[in-house]
Amino acid sequence: MKNSVIRLEDVWKIYMLDETEVPAVRGIDVNIKEGEFVSIIGKSGSGKSTTLNLVGCLDNASRGRIFLDGKDISKLDEKELARVRGRKIGFVFQTFNLIPSLNAVDNVKLPMIFQGYSEEKMEARSQKLLEMVDLGHRLDHKPSSLSGGERQRVAIARALANDPEVILADEPTGNLDTKTGEQILKFLIKLNKEKGKTLIIVTHDMYVAKKADRVIKLQDGKVIN
């Protein structure tokens, strides 16, 4: 039996829009084990992104509890949450979210800066990671001079910077053409298979979803099977 890395217990997220409550996530129970590859699917507005953001500590749940490595994250203060985001989780976004003023190497370095590594270590590691995603020849390119697929590969390298246990990807192929998307997917799956990273991918694409060990389907903020 592998350990549970992520566990959600009756998690709710209710947004307030001008006094009216908008429940985006309504009582989700999920358990994800170490090294598992899970995809989350569901219609637009079903609460996929909201759920992923809650797991990634980018937002806080309205109700219920989320455990990362057995620790209840609602009990963490802001500084501890920053540590969790920095060390345990690597995020890959649909819109890449690279820093435009920084080149590829510096973008990959960014998560390491906040962990206080030495310059040499950061430099070496970000180069290694960029080479791993076949971008060894694009080290000092800024995002504006990279293609969409290249940008997403920089983002993947960045997500790996602090060697996190969990990779969270919210529609990572959503802004890419099919072929480029497949390539990105290959890289992500490689992380799961070869490096044993726990991988959660939110997607609309059944082709992507079917590659996962397990598919979680959301509807109106609830898990349906």
């Binding site: 990634g56 980018l58 802001e78 500084k79 920053a82 540590r83 985001r85 920095g86 060390r87 995020f91 979210n97 690279l98 820093i99 960014l110 998560p111 906040f114 962990q115 960045r158 910077a161 602090n162």
Partner: peptide, 16 residues
């Protein structure tokens, strides 16, 4: 602001 979101997502604390 978006960049700030990115920095937070990759582990920057409020202070940083």
């Amino acid at each position: 602001t978006k960049q700030i979101g990115v920095m937070k997502a990759v582990g920057a604390s409020r202070f940083e």
